[in-house]
Design a protein around this nucleic acid. Structure first.
Length: 826
RNA sequence: GCCGAAGUGGCGGAAGUGGCAGACGCGCUAGGUUCAGGGUCUAGUAGGCGAUAGCCUGUGCGGGUUCAAGUCCCGCCUUCGGCACCA
């Protein structure tokens, strides 16, 4: 018999799909749409196993939805700007563009060889002028709306990448890409005002039921919303010091105040006091320390007295003002009130500098004595030493304290966020140029829309160290000011590549559109994305930026949806030998090798079967072989009897009760049950168990054909096999097409509707009921479905094992879970 | 410290609402086919006791609710992820 030759049949069917443009879609208001998206890859050279997994999951869903009659948009493109292209250009003496487009072309053939069904007519690469030109257009619109601004600010700088990084791109004080330690530095940079959306992004996190909770939690953590109050403390020598606190219930316990070294008042307050010099040198020292250094100092809280005092507006007590490195300039107001009795940091500072401690909250079960405390009490309790609030539960009193402060005009309920604006300037070459011109007389001048796009020069000598390559390219930066016509200088920084990935999913809806970045009508047909699939590593970065960007595009009138992604699936990593599969670990398995040796269908099947999509996948060469063996088994099952079955009619309907054998009804039951199970599993992404149940079906079919079968039974066999092929087809699209053809079935699998099941065949007439005595399983017994309780009781009590376990005790309870289980309590 | 997820055979993993724990696959054992290897087919495979029938124990640990708990509740432990001097 003909052997299974994946190579031959995979090439054959890929060509058929391509020649017939089977995955090309158009907007069709008469059809239900389904927008399925997987995170697009960076064209690093070759696809890796993580891609195979990600795109296999997506392809199964796309093909399944297609069979269910949806108009499925399943696009693919390239996140093509970024550092590696510059590194490669230096290493290989080539151009980033050449390197990138070569990689794209190779990786595209790899994706095709895996049989993924994309609408390649919508393909885009973010380094295409057509794409980043429109991004510059969006930048200008955002500039007009005040959503982009330039400021001098402390930034994260990676020396290895020679560029600034966003806060989101710093992981544990290191560069997210190269792992180099990030240093603090002061630079004038462009920022996107994502903080304007902090509250909405935070609140909507609870309105995304289709997202994994863990991702939403990470985003909420990152945004870091906290409710509190801003309180004005009058300064002894005039003026106010405003602080932010989430614990107004501890206001009566304030014994000192602390300013961040960067706070404007820090040196001002010390001016003219004996402490002036000391404060000055302290501030200078703190400013020169970068963030990672300050982090290492956590614990050692250093500070100096400013010589100034503030007045606690509730107690009228005079409290000293300090400057210390433990207060962050960028959070709240950059100044805090200190309550050492009820805040551990304040407590440590107070102990170190001999400052008083005043208890204002008494725990339920003990009595606090300020003199004996070894740490702050941060829990709840009853308020003491707190004027009109004495005796109140601190938590309950907070809202009243806030109103009290507001009533007296000394405070205001406020919300604070941890989220900072998104710094997007990168001192790199391979990115979208920021469309801005600096003119000595006109200042910052946006590039006029008609001058877009600002194209990247392609023939450039790239260096990694020193200044950005564009800043050393006069042909690029020497321009005339669009406003006054005099000599001016073009911005030479490029945009963070995360800007490109923040709106690519919108552009897929209307690729090549010439009038604007997006065509509202087409975008509204497809958006929002029904299902997004990608790695958990983007939980905060890309996914938060995209939510922000989609809002901007919504406000610019390009899309009706406020949130871009309806449902999100974050797939786990691919692990081998206990570590993430990666080049640096040397534990990679090359997809090309897998395809060559086992074929794409096996590679796909293993990635989907070995674990549920959202969990990490433990790579196993043996497991791959197991999957290959399964496909061989399916192949033999069908090809070996294709001649016999070819001209027979096919059915999966059972015959009449009395004429059909038990084996026939068993097989009818199995096929209907499997269709149901696979359908339900696909709907909830339990792809591994869907495959498991298909395997069970195959085992059942083998069992069925152990005996010689009559013609009527062969019709059933054919029907079952046809449905088996349909069920398996989203997972293994090539081999199933080939088998379908071999069986002489109608049309192509891909164009067939998804199989339907009949619930009546899944209801078995005879049921195996589990019998428990006092909650322990003692026997099972087969009975008629829906047997009434009295009859059931009679059957059960007649069982030997049951009798033995009951002995002569009286039956106190007889619990029946219909058609499932019986529990006798005695 | 705060927020979250997860702990089930030798391994990957099953068990939508509490109802026969270990589906499916890998591995292993025995046997058939074969000169042999590979392949393939059949049977077995949570642990312990037992010749069999069978009995006992078992889902990280300790309690609890329930006729019945991997699943629910309380208290721990471990691992992983996010945030972290955020006031």
């Amino acid at each position: 018999m003909r052997a299974y030759d994946p190579k031959e049949i995979e090439e054959k069917w890929q060509k058929v799909w391509e020649d017939n443009n089977l995955f090309r879609v158009e907007e069709d208001p008469g059809k239900k749409k389904y927008y399925l998206l997987e995170m697009f890859p960076y064209p690093s050279g070759k696809i890796h196993m993580g891609h195979v997994r990600n795109y296999s999951i997506g392809d199964v869903i796309a093909r399944y939805k297609r069979m269910r009659g949806y108009n499925v948009l399943h696009p693919m493109g390239w996140d093509a700007f970024g550092m590696p292209a510059e590194n490669a250009a230096i290493q290989h003496g080539t151009q980033p563009a050449v390197w990138t487009y070569n990689n794209i072309s190779y990786m595209k053939t790899q994706l095709k060889r895996l049989g993924f069904g994309y609408d390649w007519d919508r393909e885009l690469a973010t380094c295409d002028v057509d794409y980043y030109g429109w991004e510059q257009w969006i930048f200008l619109k955002m500039y007009e709306k005040g959503l982009v601004y330039r400021k001098n600010a402390p930034v994260n700088y990676c020396k290895l990448c020679s560029t600034v990084l966003a806060n989101e791109q710093v992981e544990d004080g290191r560069c997210w890409r190269c792992g180099e330690e990030v240093v603090q530095s002061e630079l004038t940079q462009w920022f996107f005002a994502i903080t304007k959306y902090a509250d909405e992004l935070y609140e909507y996190a609870d309105k995304l039921p289709g997202w994994p909770e863990r991702v939403l939690n990470m985003q909420k953590n990152w945004i870091g919303k906290s409710y509190g109050v801003e309180v004005d403390f009058p300064l002894e020598r005039g003026g106010l010091l405003t602080i932010f606190t989430t614990r107004p219930d501890t206001l009566y316990g304030v014994t000192f105040m602390v300013l961040a070294p960067e706070h404007a008042l820090a040196t001002e307050l010390a001016h003219g006091t004996p402490y002036e010099k000391e404060v000055h040198s302290f501030v200078e020292k703190a400013r020169s320390q970068d963030r990672s250094f300050r982090l290492e100092l956590s614990g050692s809280k250093e500070g100096v007295f400013t010589g100034a005092y503030a007045i606690n507006p509730l107690t009228n007590q005079r409290v000293p003002i300090y400057v210390s490195n433990f207060v962050l300039a960028e959070y709240g107001t950059g100044a805090i009130m200190s309550v050492p009795a009820h805040d551990q940091r304040d407590f440590e500072f107070a102990k170190a500098y001999g400052l008083p401690i005043v208890v204002t909250i008494m725990p339920e079960e003990s009595v606090l004595d300020a003199a004996l405390m070894e740490q702050a009490y941060e829990g709840d309790g009853v308020m003491v030493n707190s004027g009109p609030f004495n005796g109140r539960q601190n938590r309950e009193a907070i809202p009243e304290i806030i109103s009290y402060l507001e009533g007296k005009g000394i405070g205001k309920g406020t919300v604070n966020y941890r989220l900072r604006d998104w710094g997007i300037s990168r001192q790199r070459y391979w990115g979208a140029p920021i469309p801005i011109i600096y003119c000595e007389s006109c200042g910052v001048v946006p590039v006029p829309y008609e001058d877009l796009p600002v194209k990247l020069p392609l023939d450039l000598h790239i260096k990694l160290v020193g200044k950005s390559p564009l800043s050393e390219c006069p042909e690029f930066y020497q321009v005339k000011c669009p406003a006054c016509g005099r000599d001016a200088r073009r911005e030479t920084d490029t945009m963070d590549t995360f800007v490109e990935s923040s709106w690519y999913f919108l552009r897929y809806a209307c690729p090549g559109y010439k009038e604007a970045p997006l065509d509202r009508k087409r975008v509204d047909y497809w958006m929002p994305v029904d299902q997004y699939i990608g790695g958990i590593e983007h939980a905060v970065l890309h996914l938060l930026y995209s939510r922000f960007f989609n809002r901007i595009m919504n406000e610019l009138g390009f899309v009706a949806a406020r949130e871009p992604f309806e449902n999100l699936l974050t797939q786990g990593m691919v692990i081998k030998d206990g570590a993430k599969m990666s080049k640096s670990k040397g534990n990679v398995v090359d997809p090309d090798y897998l395809i060559e040796r086992y074929g794409a269908d096996t590679a796909r099947l293993f990635c989907l079967f070995a674990s549920p999509p959202e969990k990490d996948l433990d790579w196993s060469d043996k497991g791959v072989e197991g999957c290959h063996r399964f496909l061989q088994r399916v192949w033999r099952l069908i090809i070996d009897r294709a001649d016999t079955l070819r001209n027979l009619p096919a059915t999966i309907e059972g015959g009449s009760e009395n004429t059909q054998s038990e084996e026939v009804s068993r097989l009818v039951y199995m096929i209907h049950k499997t269709i149901k199970k696979v359908t339900e599993d696909l709907e909830r992404f339990h792809l591994n168990t869907a495959i498991a149940s298909i395997m069970e079906l195959v085992n059942a079919i083998y069992k069925f054909i152990e005996a010689e079968r009559k013609e009527g039974e062969l019709q059933l066999l054919k029907g079952v096999i046809e449905n088996l092929i349909l069920l398996l087809s989203p997972f293994c699209p090539h081999v199933t097409e080939e088998l379908w053809e071999g069986l002489g079935a109608t049309g192509r699998v891909i164009d067939r509707p998804w199989p339907a099941f009949n619930e009546a065949y899944i209801r078995e007439q005879r049921i195996t009921v589990a019998i428990q005595v006092n909650g322990k399983l003692r026997d099972t017994c087969e009975v008629e479905r829906d047997l009434d309780e009295a009859a059931l009781k009679q059957v059960v009590l007649s069982l030997d094992k049951v009798k033995r376990h009951i002995e002569d005790r009286e039956i106190r309870k007889f619990i029946v879970i219909p058609n499932k289980l019986v529990n006798l309590v005695c």
